[in-house]
Amino acid sequence: MIELETPRLLLRQWRDSDRDPYGALNDDPAVMEFFPARLSRAASDEAIDAMSRSIAERGWGNWAVEIRETGEFIGFTGLSVPKRVLPFSPCVEVGWRLAKAHWGKGYATEAATASLRAGFDTVGLEEIVSFTALINLRSRAVMERIGMKNANADFEHPGVPEGNALRMHCLYRISAADFAK
């Protein structure tokens, strides 16, 4: 099972002690601004269970992220295979979701870069994608900071209701060769 360390962060398997702060994060309107809805505590717990299973089965997935210096849980970052069939499936996605108190500190960039490195160097992936609502400029900026390029292949996300302003998504990509540069 892969766990990752960066200068400031530990990306690790999930713990029961992560459930309360992850539930609060998923109920925060600011954190969930670019999702169709906030998650109930039950849905948040189900997500932890699914992410834990993925890491146990594959050795990698969406890891819980904690600050090394304090041990504080701040969200997740990692790699996943999207559940829905998307126009560019099959694929592996890099993603993140951090508590608002930890935005603007470079944690998403640091953790996502470590996830890309693990995906390419340890897992042996050839390409990793990321996608978000067109209007989610903060996540798009992280994608660009970690070296991903806009694929100019916008698409309607099938998990977002028609007519919802979040339905149109953009796709970013990075290859193993481009990451190694």
Rank of each mutant, 00 (worst) to 15 (best):
I55N: 01
W96M: 03
L9T: 02
G95V: 03
D28P: 00
G159R: 06
G124L: 08
G163Q: 09
M51A: 14
D18A: 07
M168A: 05
R15K: 15
T113C: 02
R97I: 01
S139D: 08
K105I: 07
A99Q: 04
D28I: 02
A141I: 11
G124F: 11
G159M: 06
D20S: 12
D154V: 07
I67R: 01
R173P: 00
L116W: 04
A141G: 14
D49L: 13
R12T: 04
R58P: 09
Y172G: 00
A165F: 03
S54N: 11
S17K: 14
R8W: 04
L86I: 05
E127S: 13
T113L: 06
Y107V: 06
T122Y: 11
G163A: 11
A165E: 11
G159N: 05
A118Q: 03
Y107I: 05
L11F: 08
R138D: 10
Y172Q: 01
A180V: 04
A64E: 02
H169V: 00
M168T: 04
D28A: 03
R84M: 15
G71V: 04
T113W: 00
A30N: 09
R12H: 08
F35V: 13
T70I: 10
E162K: 09
V142R: 01
L25I: 13
V65A: 04
L4Q: 06
P29Y: 12
S130K: 03
D49G: 14
V85F: 02
T109R: 12
G124V: 10
V85I: 14
A111W: 01
S52T: 15
F73C: 03
R117Y: 08
E93V: 13
E5D: 14
F35K: 12
R138F: 05
D178R: 04
G163R: 05
L125H: 09
L10E: 04
R117N: 09
K105R: 15
F35E: 14
P158I: 07
E57R: 14
T122D: 15
T70V: 12
V160T: 05
I128G: 02
Y172I: 00
P87L: 10
F34D: 01
R38G: 13
K105E: 13
A176H: 09
F155L: 10
S89M: 02
Y107S: 07
V92S: 03
H157R: 08
F120N: 00
N26R: 14
E110P: 07
R167A: 04
L25P: 00
L137Y: 05
E33F: 11
A101F: 00
I55W: 01
E156S: 12
M168L: 13
R15N: 12
Y172T: 00
P7I: 08
R38H: 07
A108S: 15
G163C: 11
H169A: 01
A111C: 10
K83M: 09
G163N: 11
L125M: 13
K105D: 09
A43R: 12
V142A: 03
L171K: 00
V85T: 15
A114W: 00
R19I: 11
V81K: 15
